[in-house]
Design a protein around this nucleic acid. Sequence first.
DNA 1: AGTAATTTGTTCGTATGTATC
DNA 2: AGATACATACGAACAAATTAC
Lengths: 78, 78
Amino acid sequence: MDQVDHGSYVPVYQQLVAIMKKRIESGEFPPGRLIPSEKTLQQEYGVGRDTVRRVVEILREEGLIFTVPHRGSYVAER
Amino acid sequence: MDQVDHGSYVPVYQQLVAIMKKRIESGEFPPGRLIPSEKTLQQEYGVGRDTVRRVVEILREEGLIFTVPHRGSYVAER
DNA sequence: AGTAATTTGTTCGTATGTATC
DNA sequence: AGATACATACGAACAAATTAC
């Protein structure tokens, strides 16, 4: 499950939240590290910005990342 | 009548049209002023974007506001 | 010092699907 | 059957701040 399925009944944004959580928890993005930019995530997963921003917002609300405007989103300390 | 009643027989969009008219006519949004964005209105009234866009469209057709794409909707001169 | 590229913030435009009344 | 209403999803445009060179 490393890609998004547009045909699934599970919303794309929920799928991508799960993917990004896995990438963070696996250690691919350690605390303090910048996650890929919105544009990069759009291209990597073939989704719209709307969807990416929603995913980032959810990760932020759940405390996994924090966003610095015009810089990017960093993985939070755990 | 500053909030929307989802249980009413009056459609939500009509209720919201009435509310926004009142807000405009009361002077809360003077001519030239931007009204709240679609997203803000969604959150303020707990309605979907569909409904908000319909409200804005009606206000526009009635000449109370005019919309500039990617900017917002301004209160018209009266 | 200054310009260009990058990145997030914000807003409206459009379309589709689903459910309810 | 039709109107109402919400959710999802992609685009496009522009602003503003930061970073890179």
